[in-house]
Amino acid sequence: MAEQKRMEEFLKFSVEETYNEQKNITNGLLQVRGKSCSFEESSMTFEFPVLPWEENRVGFMHGGVMCTAFDFSMGVLSRFYAGSNWAPTVSIEVKYIRPVDMGDVFVVKCIATATGKRIIQLRGEAYSGKTGKLVATAAAVYMSIDTTTEKRG
């Protein structure tokens, strides 16, 4: 129960940090909402309202923005498991299944599948908030870097 509470607090902190410290960069522009988390499942779920600036040239949510939402979501979960370490993205792969309408909500559930000392592997599923249908999946790898012994970047 203590670990679940710690995860809930980290989810809340991460979303608040995005609004307070990253409001004018990509993460803040996404207007993310933390929906839920489960320490038992090693998962976090986020909601991203599909905004006008995210529209592609044919009127749907841009695939690059979908990838960014996955990276944000899985990045938060990887940082939870990395603790005080820095956890940059090593790789991310997105599979697009169906388009997401403007005005919808892009719902991302990410699950940590391996949380080693150095490498954190995750998978993600994204759903339409309106229809509940699966719209994309992702897989990513993050590296936990101890910044007290290694230089960042």
Results as ranks from 00 to 15, higher is better:
residue 10 F to N: 11
residue 12 K to H: 14
residue 13 F to W: 15
residue 14 S to T: 11
residue 16 E to C: 04
residue 17 E to I: 00
residue 18 T to L: 08
residue 21 E to C: 13
residue 22 Q to F: 15
residue 23 K to A: 14
residue 25 I to K: 12
residue 26 T to E: 11
residue 26 T to M: 15
residue 26 T to P: 05
residue 27 N to P: 14
residue 28 G to D: 14
residue 29 L to Y: 11
residue 31 Q to G: 10
residue 35 K to M: 06
residue 36 S to R: 15
residue 36 S to A: 15
residue 37 C to Y: 08
residue 37 C to A: 13
residue 37 C to F: 06
residue 37 C to E: 10
residue 41 E to C: 02
residue 47 E to G: 02
residue 48 F to A: 09
residue 49 P to L: 09
residue 49 P to Y: 11
residue 51 L to H: 10
residue 52 P to K: 11
residue 53 W to Q: 15
residue 53 W to T: 12
residue 55 E to A: 12
residue 56 N to R: 14
residue 60 F to D: 14
residue 61 M to L: 15
residue 62 H to E: 10
residue 62 H to V: 03
residue 62 H to Q: 15
residue 65 V to Y: 09
residue 65 V to F: 07
residue 65 V to Q: 08
residue 67 C to F: 04
residue 68 T to I: 02
residue 70 F to K: 07
residue 72 F to W: 06
residue 72 F to H: 11
residue 77 L to T: 06
residue 78 S to E: 03
residue 80 F to G: 03
residue 80 F to M: 02
residue 87 A to C: 10
residue 87 A to Y: 03
residue 88 P to F: 01
residue 88 P to L: 01
residue 89 T to E: 02
residue 90 V to D: 07
residue 91 S to N: 12
residue 91 S to R: 08
residue 93 E to Q: 12
residue 94 V to H: 06
residue 94 V to Y: 04
residue 95 K to F: 00
residue 98 R to H: 05
residue 99 P to V: 09
residue 99 P to F: 07
residue 100 V to I: 14
residue 102 M to W: 00
residue 104 D to L: 03
residue 104 D to C: 03
residue 104 D to V: 02
residue 106 F to I: 08
residue 110 C to K: 07
residue 112 A to L: 09
residue 113 T to I: 13
residue 113 T to S: 07
residue 117 K to Y: 00
residue 118 R to G: 01
residue 120 I to M: 07
residue 121 Q to G: 01
residue 121 Q to Y: 00
residue 121 Q to R: 14
residue 122 L to Y: 05
residue 124 G to Y: 04
residue 124 G to W: 04
residue 125 E to T: 03
residue 125 E to G: 01
